[in-house]
Amino acid sequence: MKRRSFIKRTTIAGTAAAIFASSVPEALSQPKPESTQTPGTIIHSVYFWLKKGLTTSEKMEFLNFFQVLKNIPITNTLTFGKPAPTTTREVTDNTFDYNLIITFATLEDINVYETHPDHIKAAQEYSKYWEKVQVRDTVIG
């Protein structure tokens, strides 16, 4: 009797596992694709803390800064956003107002960007809106 009970339980468990495995979307069971960024790609992350008391109009004007930078031809990709409403933890910092992320193909490209006249002019023009900026650059290995 014990043997029949064991066989019945293992058969049910095996059937349940097979049903579960077949119901998991294929995309979830596949390994993540490798990054499309090649070794040597530079990820330029810039965090902005805007001045307190800016009007809605001034905040909207600040966003034009990103459009100016986007038009600098040496950039690969450019995106920006506000802090995500993730769980507050000791290791997270969601105190910034905007994060700008630009990728560059090479270290030489970011060096050109940093001294590009449009970048320098835009930073001078729009710096009136921020009280603090932090830059973190990463090279993909």
Rank of each mutant, 00 (worst) to 15 (best):
M1A: 12
K2I: 15
R3G: 12
R4Q: 13
R4G: 08
R4F: 13
F6W: 12
T10A: 06
T11E: 04
T11S: 14
T15H: 01
I19Y: 05
I19E: 05
A21I: 04
S22R: 00
S22M: 02
S23V: 00
V24P: 00
V24N: 04
L28C: 03
K32M: 08
P33T: 10
P33D: 11
P33N: 11
E34G: 02
E34Q: 04
S35N: 14
S35W: 09
T38C: 04
G40L: 00
T41V: 06
I43T: 10
H44F: 05
H44T: 02
H44P: 03
S45A: 12
V46Q: 05
F48C: 06
W49F: 09
K52M: 02
K52A: 13
G53Q: 08
T55F: 01
T56R: 11
S57E: 14
K59M: 02
M60W: 05
M60A: 13
L69A: 07
K70L: 06
N71H: 09
N71I: 07
I74V: 15
I74Q: 07
T77F: 14
L78H: 09
G81F: 09
G81L: 11
K82Y: 08
T86S: 14
E90M: 12
T92G: 10
N94T: 15
T95M: 09
D97E: 08
D97Y: 13
L100K: 11
I102D: 00
T103L: 02
F104E: 02
F104I: 02
F104W: 05
F104S: 04
A105Q: 03
E108Y: 03
D109E: 04
I110W: 01
Y113P: 02
Y113Q: 00
E114P: 00
H116E: 01
P117C: 15
K121N: 12
A122W: 08
A122Q: 12
A123L: 14
A123E: 05
E125R: 02
Y126V: 11
S127L: 04
Y129L: 10
Y129I: 12
W130F: 13
V133R: 09
V133A: 07
V135K: 02
V135T: 04
D137I: 00
G141P: 15
